[in-house]
Amino acid sequence: MRGIVFSDKTETLVQALTFFRQKMEVDAAVPAENTQPLQEYGAKRLYALQGTGFSDNVSEAILGIIEREKYDFIFIMSTALGREVAGIISDRLGKEIIAEVFDFNLDNSKVRTKRFAWGGKTVTEEESDCRIFTVMPGMTEASRTSEKSEVVQVKLNDSKISLVQSIPKSSSTVDLEHANIIVSVGRGIGKKESIDLVMPFVRAVKGELAGSRPVCLDYQWLSEDRQVGLSGRKVKPKLYIAIGISGQIQHIAGMRGSKTVIAINKDKSAPIFEEADFGIVGDLFQIVPALVKALQQ
């Protein structure tokens, strides 16, 4: 069995290579500027796509490689570009695709995959003859191998789309991925000023501050690089403390790997309590100061 993995993000590609190299022989396709750190993750061949990549010319390049190499499986990592490329490639090949899988197993000639359904409320396990998949980040922990990939340069064709400008997002200095304790706040804190009330607690536990999507993206009470969840950071601290977070599945997707979870929420039936080891039902504005006090004793 042979497969190819495409990703425009190094971090998710190395996870996928680590996972799939145990199931089959894999090659990978990546933007040329990303090849350097990727050669030690078990891809037999690394196709370095040279030039500015858009959904159309990246799809074309990958289709060209697929046509030559006749892979059994095509895995495309779920990023903004990846999902578009997956749509185009599956259409051009006329092949059925399963999207956003987080588990993959070969079972004779069939494939068994798992993905979230109903907005993440359930996990669907499916059996199929599918050969193309988009893959969720975080399938496994990345690890290196001793063999180095052979790098093959591929020149991208011109795109119908042109790049006017690239706008960097201020690069993050927040290291949530390696934090020991994370204090994460949700819409329940009510307003930006409440962060000041939570800060003594963050300091008392020597933690890093993080937040749910509404807090980081919609209201901008915290910077976007502190967002935990499906479309944010994936964290796995020793202790994750969720304050005023309801625990929607898209949030859980980012903190499921935490060793221990504490939840503080005034709503007894908030789903976060299903994902917590310890919790208190009550008003965060009382509980957080009380905890600071108790910790100082």
Binding site: E96, E125, K268, F278
Partner: peptide
């Protein structure tokens, strides 16, 4: 060609020790 084998809410392995009484909960936390 896709057949669904199962479609279920994921089971959480968490301890779920939830306190409604703060007096009891604060020392544990």
């Amino acid at each position: 060609s896709i057949s669904v084998i199962s479609d279920r809410a994921p089971k959480s392995e968490r301890k779920k020790e939830i306190y409604e009484d703060q007096e009891k909960g604060i020392p544990v936390l």
